[in-house]
Design a protein around this nucleic acid. Structure first.
Lengths: 133, 133
DNA sequence: CTGAATCCGCTCGGATACTG
DNA sequence: CAGTATCCGAGCGGATTCAG
């Protein structure tokens, strides 16, 4: 682990509440609830991947299938529906033949961008770490 | 939605790759993989909550149970084991009577702090949004 | 092309009881 | 106190087939 990271970790540790455990639990209740709320939305193997793709533009159903090579149509359609219900994704149907459907991030979906960025960064670093071992 | 947020969203949109979908998929492959790696680790209803608590100090098993009122002992012990295997959490046993076991974040666990922060922020905002509706 | 329908195994996660 | 053991249901998620 390099020094910059070690410093960073020390900085993080300094954020700690530094109280008896039961007091921490009491003071931290609201934040903990927030985390559980957030996790409920982004739960599932595919949701964040779909959102991350859509951060970069508009995609058709079949394009999303290409971007997520291992997803089954059942899952893709289910996850998209979930995301639409939660107001994160917008679905648009073009009345052409054959039918064309495109998905894009709703404005509300863009509020997840900072999270996506952190997730990506951590995932990249994590992979590096695993490779080293 | 307030103006500051709208501006933020516009800023995010400007990050977009702005290429044909299939090219985006190609260029974005590595990041997408990173997201899936990360999600695999933090997957599950309780993992991030446990890590978030441990960001604030050291907790005993029974204290964690108090902090996560709805978790069953089976889940708590399983999730803690997962986190330990992934090098995120450290487990320490004190040979007293009765036995005392404490859990704390490993250094590697602290690398998740930025993610926790974003998750918390988004969860708090999301809750506000839901309330308004 | 964009899914919906069906079937099925597996794991997640809860409830309860029990142990060193 | 810190878990383990056992049982169970619900839903995740894959594979395949079919429809508009």
């Amino acid at each position: 682990m390099d020094k910059a990271l070690k410093d960073k970790i020390e900085e993080f540790k300094s954020y700690r509440l530094d109280k008896p455990p039961l007091e921490i639990i009491e003071h931290y209740k609201k934040e903990l609830q927030a985390i559980q709320d957030a996790m409920e939305i982004i739960q599932g193997r595919w949701k964040m991947s779909i959102i991350a793709l859509l951060c970069n533009g508009e995609f058709r159903y079949s394009e999303l299938e290409k971007g997520l090579p291992k997803i089954s149509p059942r899952m893709l359609s289910k996850e998209l529906k979930d995301l639409e219900i939660n107001g994160l994704v917008e679905r648009k149907v073009y009345d052409s033949i054959p039918v064309k459907v495109s998905y894009k991030l709703a404005d509300y979906g863009y509020t997840l961008v900072p999270l996506i960025i952190e997730l990506t960064n951590w995932g990249l670093e994590h992979r590096k770490m695993i490779m080293k071992r």
